[in-house]
Amino acid sequence: MMLARLRLARVFDQAFHVMADLQWTMLAVLILVHALASWELLVLAGETELTEPATFFYWYATTAYTVGYGDLSPQETAGRLVVALWIFPGAIAAFTTVVAKVLGAIGDVWRRRRSGKGDYSRMTDTIVLIGYHPVRTPKMIDELCAELAREQTLVLLTRQALSEPDERVRYVQTESLTSPAALTRAGLAGASRVLIYTDSDSDTLAATLAAGACAPEAAHIVCYFDNEDSARLVRQHCIRAEVVLSSGPEMLARAARDPGASQVISALTSHLDEGATLFSLTWSAVDASWRDLARRCLDAGATLLAHQPADRAEPAFNPPAEACVSPGDRLFYVAAARLDPAVLSG
C-alpha cells in the first residue's frame, strides 16, 4: 500500500512539472480538454444538475479554485467517482500550475529588473540618467525626486553592477553607455529628459552623442563636463544638449571676492534646502514686457532673474524694462516653490 502511494505521488509530481514547463497555449488547451472530458464523464454518469453549461462552468471553476462552496455536488455514485478520480486531481493541478507560472513570471520580471536586465522601451515621459557616480548620482536622484513637475519615472543606465539599486529608479546595466540596445531598453526613445554624468569627459561625450541620436527631438538633454574642450565638442555636434561645465575655480574666486556667494549659488541650485530656489518656465501667453512680468512675479512672491529668447542660446540678466517676452521664451526666477504659469499670465 505504501509503495502504491509513493508511485502515485511520483506520477502526480512528474505530471505537475510537465505542466509547469508547458507554454501558456498548450496549458490552456490541456485545461480545455480536461474540462470537456469532465463534462462528458458527468453526462455519462447521469449528473444532470451539473451538466448545464453555465452551471458546469461555475462548479468546475470553484472546484479548480479549491473554494468548494458546497452548493453543487455529484449525487450519483458514478459521478462521485468521476469527481474524485478525474476532476479533482486534474482541475486542482491545472489551477496550481497556472498560479505557479504567474508567480514565476512575476518573480522573473522582478529578478531581471533587480539585476539591471529590465526593459523600459515602452515607457514614455521618463527621465533617463546615464552614468553612475557613487556619491553624486544619489544626490541627483534626491534632487529629482524632491521636486518633479509631475509623476515621472527615473531610469538609471550604468555600467556598474549595483547590488542594492535605489528603489526610486528603474535600473539598467550595460557594458557600454553608447549601446543602441541598452539605450533602447532604458526607454530613451520615449524620454522627456536625459541627464548624463559619467566617470570621465570622454565617456560623457560619447554618451551625449549617442543619446542625441536616440532621444526624441523634444527631449531635453543635459550633460556635465569638467573640461571646456570636451564641452565645446558637444556644442558643435549636439547643439540641442545643454552643457553644465564645472565651475570650481571660478566659484573659489567669486567666494574670495564676495564672501557667501558660493553659498547663495549652492542654495539656488538645490531643492532639498528650505528657502528660495531657482526655477524656470516657458512663456506661453501673449507678448508681455519684462517690467510687467517682474511685477507679477513680485506679487506672487518670486523674483524674476533672467530672460532667454527662443532664438538665443544664453539667457540675458536684467534686460531693459521694455524688453518683450514672447511665447516660447524662457524665464528664470527665484521662489520658495514653483509658480503656476497662469499666475503670471493674468
Rank of each mutant, 00 (worst) to 15 (best):
R7N: 06
L8Q: 15
V11M: 04
M19L: 00
M19P: 01
A28Q: 14
L32C: 07
A35Q: 12
E40A: 10
L42M: 10
T48V: 15
L50A: 10
L72Q: 06
S73C: 02
Q75Y: 01
E76H: 08
T77A: 01
R80Q: 06
L81M: 04
A84G: 03
I92Q: 11
F95A: 14
T96W: 15
T97Q: 06
A100G: 15
A105T: 12
W110Y: 11
R111V: 10
R114P: 08
S115M: 14
G118Y: 12
S121V: 11
S121G: 01
D125Q: 13
V128D: 14
P134W: 05
P134H: 15
P138A: 13
L144T: 07
T153F: 09
V155Y: 07
L157N: 00
A161V: 05
A161Q: 11
E167L: 01
T174D: 11
T174Y: 00
E175M: 02
L177Q: 02
A181T: 03
G190V: 10
A191K: 00
R193K: 13
V194D: 12
Y197C: 03
Y197P: 13
T204M: 04
A206V: 05
L209V: 09
G212C: 09
G212A: 14
P216W: 00
V222T: 08
Y224L: 00
D226S: 01
V234C: 00
Q236P: 05
H237A: 08
P259A: 14
L268E: 09
T269C: 14
H271A: 02
A276K: 01
T277S: 08
F279Y: 01
A285P: 02
S289V: 00
A300I: 11
L304I: 03
L304W: 03
A306S: 08
A306E: 03
Q308M: 15
R312D: 12
A316P: 09
N318R: 10
P319W: 09
P320L: 15
A321M: 12
V325T: 04
V325M: 05
V325S: 06
F332D: 06
V334D: 00
A336F: 06
A342K: 05
